[in-house]
Amino acid sequence: MSLFLNILIVAIIIGGAGVVLYRHLKKSKAGSCPACEYDCAAKQQLKKHQMEQHHSS
């Protein structure tokens, strides 16, 4: 495996970690419901509703 490929994989892992941390902090910052890890029925229904709206538009 070339050095370039090694560096590329390291960059992808670190970049990926950065993205998930950014997303986590952004989600947490949004407050109660989005920050809550519990995927309750209300959240599931909301996602379904958003998907339906997305498909219909």
């Binding site: 947490s28 910052k29 407050g31 109660s32 809550c36």
Partner: peptide, 12 residues
């Protein structure tokens, strides 16, 4: 508390 809990306190 963790960041998510702090955000929840702020929101509530």
């Amino acid at each position: 508390p963790c960041f998510a809990t702090l955000a929840a306190i702020k929101a509530e």
